[in-house]
Design a protein around this nucleic acid. Structure first.
Lengths: 162, 162
DNA sequence: GTCCCTATACTCGGATAGCAAGTGTCCGAGTATAGGCGG
DNA sequence: CCGCCTATACTCGGACACTTGCTATCCGAGTATAGGGAC
């Protein structure tokens, strides 16, 4: 069970967008260049973020992507669900109803124990993801970045944001 | 991110094995028949459980699989990790080190914030899975089963365990 | 009757195809801008 | 000199190939058992 690589890209992109001045936008090609990933494929994931209402788009020159809401109100869970989909990690196929013990549906009023445990684990996972906001990701990245990395980032940002 | 279907099969098989009389074993073909799943493919997953030390095997007539330890000492987490592998759900590719801000490795002493949050969520998921034992799964299934389903199960078990 | 031996049938185990979903890429649709033209 | 218009270039958006890993299956390796034969 491997999480899509696009989740990592989307999370980092959201953190970068959180550091933009209000009103500014960054095209997919610039975000891809900043992270060293294929632009065409990153665009696909950014579209998913747009569909989820996490970022908003602006077409034409000086357009691109910007956060649709304050970074402090966007959680990592939303990003994961936007890229990876909302379906739970475990899909119960009700195998207890098959085989020699199979009976009519009314004999299974409660959900199966395996399913219940998986749902609890899934909820714990999502709950933990919801505790981290994009604002915290951006703040942490800036706080832990070395002066050299920070300087390069500022210089690059000034070049692409005329 | 979908969990392998084999996890569900393995969990249910472990619960069934927990109800066996001490010393008895159940072949993969019987377990597959009980759950209505392809025998050859289930065998593959049972082998994974055997490699992980969760079940032990007995070859030849009257052989099969049995739990290698008391059911109360086997957690759902162990089963998930045996089938799905031990690698974490999120794999950090360190994209922060790429692109125009790239610097030498010593400029990144701390792990990236996205990675850290993902590790926390992963730990919460596994922690919750570890709270459920195979014994609890088996007890719950027997407790919630309707009399009809229970009777069919007992009858089937008596047929295949001569 | 008892013991041993052998053939048998039953079991697991790893190596082998098929398919779905994630990965990667492309070109067309839409729009803010910059320059030119007319008043 | 000012306002409008148009052409342009830049952006997103969805539709199209490719690869990895899960799904499914098979046949060979190994062993407890049952039956027969010898003592």
């Amino acid at each position: 069970m491997r999480l899509s690589e696009g989740v990592e890209w989307a999370a980092h992109c959201a953190a970068v967008l959180a550091t933009l001045p209000p009103g500014a936008a960054l095209p997919a090609a610039r975000l891809a260049e900043f992270h060293g990933v294929p632009a065409a494929y990153l665009a696909k994931h950014l579209q998913a973020l747009a569909r989820a209402g996490i970022v908003e788009t602006a077409r034409g020159p000086r357009g691109g992507y910007r956060l649709a809401r304050p970074a402090s109100e966007i959680t990592l869970l939303e990003i994961v669900e936007a890229i990876d989909g909302l379906e739970p990690t475990f899909r119960c196929t009700e195998i207890r109803r098959r085989g020699p013990t199979a009976s009519s549906a009314r004999h299974y009023p409660t959900i199966c124990g395996v399913h219940a445990a998986m749902l609890r684990a899934d909820a714990a996972w999502r709950s933990e993801l919801a505790r981290t906001t994009v604002q915290e990701l951006a703040d942490g990245a800036l706080r832990n970045a070395s002066p050299e990395v920070l300087a390069k980032g500022v210089r690059w940002m000034q070049e692409v944001l005329p």
